[in-house]
């Protein structure tokens, strides 16, 4: 497992600025980054976990977050992390590694167990996944309230911040495990759905540059989403950027042919035709 711990830098400061606005409180000593590179900061310092024995305790923390962070059954975690262990061995391994994890992070009360369930205390920890989902939920709430121009700007702003958190998939640089795959796919799917919805709101309000930014981000995440290519082409057309629109079409056509062995749909061809002189 590659434990690339987060180092100081401009990007981290930016993330922490948003973290401060969305859930991070100064008295939360632990910050955990899981979207892209995995990293932990305790009291502002990157955790030195580059030693071999930290592998499994940190995997336990990752699994706890993957299973929802709160009230996760010990047996569920134990059998996910030690699927081949027999008898009580998995739960014994869990106990040993929970002890190591607590000692490694060194923040009392961070991980609690109660009635066979484990929780990560959200008053002591900030996790990027939590902030990311909170932002997406907030955009959902605003979208339900109204589709007016003022709301649109607020939604786009919140969504931009959510995109800042989403550096890559959940634990994307860690080995694939059945327990991390589910959250990774759920977040990816949720983000793509939001890109389509909020891009449409931006379009409806004539915010074409915002729409373009959202669709391009969506295509970074999913280069085979034909709907995103089509909306990107439409956005370029509204800005009079016909060459960019046609280049987007070519990229769509190339990727569909290369990776899916299909050609663009009639809808996409119609948008292409509208870009021609």
């Amino acid at each position: 497992m590659g434990l690339n711990l987060i180092q100081d830098g401009r990007h981290l400061r930016l993330l922490e600025t948003y973290a401060g606005r969305y859930g991070y409180k100064p008295d939360q000593p632990v910050r955990i980054h899981t979207l892209g590179r995995f990293g932990i900061r305790v009291n502002g310092r990157a955790l030195d976990a580059a030693r071999g024995r930290q592998h499994k305790p940190l995997e336990l923390l990752q699994a706890l977050i993957a299973f929802g962070s709160r009230g996760v059954a010990v047996e569920l975690l134990a059998h996910a992390l030690w699927p081949d262990a027999e008898g009580d061995a998995a739960v014994n391994n869990f106990d040993v590694n929970l002890h190591r994890l607590r000692r490694l992070i060194g923040v009392a009360g961070l991980i609690t167990t109660d009635g066979g369930r484990v929780s990560l205390d959200n008053t002591l920890a900030w996790v990027d996944v939590w902030a990311f989902e909170r932002l997406l939920n907030e955009t959902d709430r605003l979208l339900l309230l109204s589709r007016g121009r003022a709301v649109s700007k607020r939604v786009e702003h919140l969504f931009d911040q959510a995109l800042t958190f989403y550096q890559d998939g959940f634990l994307a640089r860690e080995p694939v495990r059945p327990w991390n795959l589910s959250l990774r796919e759920r977040l990816r799917s949720k983000l793509l759905r939001h890109i389509v919805d909020i891009g449409q709101v931006a379009e409806d309000n004539g915010h074409w540059r915002s729409a373009i930014r959202f669709y391009r981000k969506g295509l970074e995440i999913e280069p085979l989403a034909e709907e995103l290519y089509r909306h990107l082409m439409i956005s370029y057309r509204h800005l009079g950027q016909y060459a960019e629109g046609l280049a987007t079409y070519q990229r769509c056509r190339h990727n569909l042919a290369t990776l899916l062995q299909i050609v663009p749909s009639k809808e996409t061809e119609a948008v292409r035709a509208s870009l021609l002189p």
Partner: peptide
Amino acid sequence: GTQAPDPRTPEPLADAGTGRP
């Protein structure tokens, strides 16, 4: 079901509307 080709080696394109190359 076909093996997904290497994206660096594009397949020939089909006419629009046929769905498949």
